[in-house]
């Protein structure tokens, strides 16, 4: 971030939080479950795998549960929800002039370093989210609101993991000037 706080005129975090909370409640009220993201990406990928290596999908139990035989991995609410996230994110960014092909990175690293780190982090996040059966949306946000013990544990350990390595990776995110 630059010298000024909030140069991009983002919403007040408490207003965004209240709106997100209302949306989460409405989602639970209407559908009986919360919000999700990684599960939708998972199903898109399984659908691709099913196109390329259908026999492999049928013989791998984890994949077959979603796409074995006649099953269509895309026939699931979370796929529609993920499509909605992309559309909503785009419209919000477009209305505020924030849709720009760009790389956001700390001033001490190059865009290329940022891409490599984003990729590594993505691998960890993708793997971890499947291991934990959900990500920040599906577990931490949704599960915590309905008081799941596992989701609260997950939320706490995401922060523990982050704070454990934050010091070692501080150069990635350091604002210019100090150090």
């Amino acid at each position: 971030m630059q010298a000024k706080r909030n140069p991009d005129r983002y919403w007040d975090p408490y207003i965004a939080g209240v709106l997100l909370g209302l949306l989460l409640f409405l989602t639970f009220f209407l559908t009986g479950h919360g919000l999700g993201s990684s599960g939708g990406v998972n199903r898109l990928l399984v659908a691709l795998e099913d196109l390329v290596v259908p026999r492999h999908v049928d013989t791998t139990p984890y994949l077959a549960a979603m796409a074995g035989g006649e099953r269509n991995p895309l026939d699931h609410w979370i796929v529609w929800q993920v499509a909605g996230i992309l559309l909503g994110g785009f419209l919000s960014g477009w209305l505020r002039g924030r849709v720009r092909l760009e790389t956001r990175h700390g001033p001490l690293i190059t865009p290329r370093t940022r891409w490599v780190m984003a990729f590594i982090g993505g691998v960890l996040m993708g793997y971890g989210a499947r291991l934990a059966r959900g990500c920040t949306s599906g577990q931490a946000l949704s599960g915590s609101a309905v008081l799941s013990v596992g989701s609260w544990m997950f939320l706490i350990f995401v922060f523990v993991g982050g704070y454990l390595v934050a010091w070692f990776l501080r150069r990635l995110w350091q604002p210019g000037g100090d150090n």
Partner: peptide
């Protein structure tokens, strides 16, 4: 374990799956 891995990934990437979509 999944939470810890994701926490580490979060600091590398600065995104989680949902935020990366936007």
């Amino acid at each position: 374990v999944g939470g810890l891995i994701m926490g580490v990934g979060f600091v590398f990437a600065g995104f989680c799956p949902g935020t990366s979509l936007v």
